[in-house]
């Protein structure tokens, strides 16, 4: 028994350290992070691609544009050669970097450049709306769960109402009303078609998904001895919330992040697909899918690629979410997704 390890070393295995080590040894963490990093870097390079490689403006239609393939000048929109020979077909993928590598859309715009620009918006909305949901949801959940009584019933009733309002109907209603008129209320004014509108709408409709489970956790925590001891020793409410309650709900909050970002991104793309999300001339993967519908049977790549990128991003986020949940293992459960 002489070479027994000292007990101190065992004590130093804090839950946070165990979680970090589990996460670092999980293959899913690395696959998902690498994919996400790749997609983020790719979309952020959109201005570089448009300026130096494709040399086109992806927001201006170029119906009479031309491009050079194998030394020959080819127009971007060509007369249809199928069926009744009516209408024009945009140029298909040339697989040549710099000259419409992935083809053009029905307005002669470079699909590759639009995909990159659209990705910036989709990811921006997904991340900001996801974090907005997490922040508001955690705040409301902690306040409701900790205060109890009147404050709790008031917040819970509001959450119940939003919860029972079908997410898609609520977000579509808000988008239909706000997108064409904008939002003007006292000092806050958002112009019609602004990117902030979908961010706020998506950020708000999912708040109960986070606030309800967090509230439940906080109510359970309030009954625990260490919190009662803090209350008994005369600690201020703010001290109890920041020192005792918050550190214990943070793991659940972290688990929610990748899932909420994925959900927000999927919702944005669905709203944009219904033309009530991101407004032209801005693009997102959802609006590109919508634009590609008219070309679905002739140039399917225009609608297929953005969807594929959405799937890859959402799979990475969910994979990362699974790895984080297994590492932290709080009983985080979510109601069905979209």
């Amino acid at each position: 028994m002489t070479d027994r390890e000292p007990a101190v070393q065992v004590l130093s295995e804090s839950p946070g350290r165990i979680a970090r080590e589990t996460l670092a040894h999980d293959r899913r963490t690395w696959i998902a992070s690498a994919l996400l990093l790749f997609i983020v870097v790719l979309t952020l390079s959109a201005p570089l691609y448009a300026t130096y490689i494709s040399k086109t403006d992806p927001f201006v239609s170029s119906i009479n544009g031309t491009t050079v393939i194998d030394g020959q000048e080819v127009s971007v929109l060509q007369q249809s050669t199928e069926g009744l020979r009516i209408g024009v077909n945009p140029i298909g993928p040339t697989w040549r970097i710099g000259s419409y590598a992935l083809g053009a859309d029905n307005q002669g715009r470079d699909v590759a450049a639009r995909l990159l620009y659209g990705g910036t918006n989709t990811l921006l909305i997904g991340f900001t709306a996801g974090f907005l949901t997490i922040t508001i949801g955690t705040l409301l959940g902690v306040i409701a769960g900790y205060s109890g009584k009147f404050v709790d019933s008031f917040i819970s009733r509001i959450l119940d109402v939003i919860w029972a309002f079908p997410v898609y109907l609520l977000s579509i209603s808000l988008s239909v009303v706000l997108l064409t008129s904008g939002f003007i209320w006292g000092p806050i004014s958002l112009e019609a078609g602004s990117l902030y509108l979908p961010i706020f709408i998506i950020g708000l409709v999912y708040v109960p998904y986070v606030a309800r489970p967090i509230r439940g956790q906080v109510i359970a925590l309030r009954e625990r001895e260490f919190v009662k001891a803090a209350i008994g020793s005369g600690a201020k409410n703010s001290q109890i919330i920041f020192r005792e309650i918050l550190p214990n709900v943070i793991p659940s909050v972290i688990v929610f992040i990748p899932m909420m970002v994925a959900l927000a991104m999927l919702t944005e793309s669905a709203l944009s697909f219904l033309s009530i999300g991101v407004q032209p001339p801005d693009a997102s993967w959802g609006t590109i899918i919508k634009d590609g519908l008219g070309l679905l049977y002739t140039r399917p790549l225009v609608a297929l690629l953005p969807g594929l990128l959405i799937v890859i991003t959402a799979v990475s986020l969910n994979l990362l979410g699974d790895a984080v949940r297994d590492a932290l293992d709080p009983k985080a459960r979510m109601r069905g997704a979209v």
Binding site: S269, I289, L296, G307, I310, V311, A314, N318
Partner: peptide, 23 residues
């Protein structure tokens, strides 16, 4: 399972249409 929850349903529908209603 993870692909199922990550698919945009409207896009999957369009892919299905492309296959069953296209060429």
């Amino acid at each position: 399972g993870i692909i199922g929850v990550s698919l945009p349903v409207y896009w999957l529908g369009e892919v299905v249409n492309l296959i069953t209603q296209g060429r």
